[in-house]
């Protein structure tokens, strides 16, 4: 069976096709979740943001002018909702490029079960990165990886700065991973 296009799915969902809607959710729910979690929202707040984003899409399902822009639309809606939650909870909403050099100093607090030491170090390193990097990297590793255009929407940044930002974030992730590896006395690269 060939993959249905986004335009096809949106059209079918607008006409009441529940299955088409479910497919849209399955394709893009992880991106919405990743953006919200990348911005540092708690699981409960991320669930709330996700709910609002999908309800908004239900409202607009027959009104989106550009079906190809669906993912960017979802990413933008999610980002706005995240900012609203962050303001409500008194957290800084970043702006500009400078914050790339600012550490969050707030590693992901959840206790998670990971198989190896290396995995735990990588997860911890990710949690130390600036918020913008966490959003970008988490969005990039979604099952349906977004385009630069869509990443730009998730971050509220110009498309042209996504490439350089991506490189810097990956650099920082590598650097922090190495620092942590040295700290635990494991200097292997782990690239087996």
């Amino acid at each position: 069976m060939s993959e249905r296009t986004t335009a096809d799915l949106l059209g079918a969902a607008a006409a009441g096709d529940r299955g088409a809607w479910d497919t849209l959710v399955e394709r893009h729910a992880r991106l919405v979740w990743s953006i919200a979690r990348g911005y540092g929202l708690s699981a409960a707040d991320a669930a709330d943001v996700s709910q609002t984003a999908w309800l908004r899409l239900v409202e607009h399902v027959g009104r989106l002018r550009d079906p190809q822009g669906l993912v960017a639309w979802l990413a933008t809606t999610t980002r706005h909702e995240c900012f609203r939650v962050m303001r409500r909870t008194g957290r800084e909403v970043f702006a500009g490029e400078g914050d790339l050099d600012v550490e969050t100093g707030d590693p992901t607090p959840e206790t998670v079960v990971l198989d190896s030491e290396r995995d735990r170090l990588l997860w911890a390193a990710l949690g130390e990165l600036p918020q913008r990097c966490q959003v970008l990297l988490r969005a990039m590793v979604c099952a349906e990886p977004p385009s630069y255009q869509e990443l730009a929407a998730a971050l509220g940044m110009p498309v042209g700065s996504i490439g350089p930002t991506r490189s810097r974030c990956l650099d920082q992730l590598k650097k922090r991973l190495r620092v942590r590896e040295v700290a635990v006395g494991n200097t292997e690269t782990g690239e087996t």
Binding site: A13, R18, W21, D22, V25, E26, A29, R30, V32, W33, S34, R37, A43, A46, A47, S50, Q51, W54, L55, L57, V58, T108, E110, V112, V113, L114, D115, R118, D119, L122, W123, L126, L137, R138, V141, L173, G190
Partner: peptide, 25 residues
């Protein structure tokens, strides 16, 4: 690739969140 695997394991999207998104319809 490593990051993809670790994120999937450490912070998967809860089933309830996917269900709620589908129910929005």
């Amino acid at each position: 690739d490593e990051l993809r695997r670790v994120v999937d394991q450490a912070d998967p999207i809860p089933d309830a969140v996917i269900r709620a998104a589908k129910e929005s319809f």
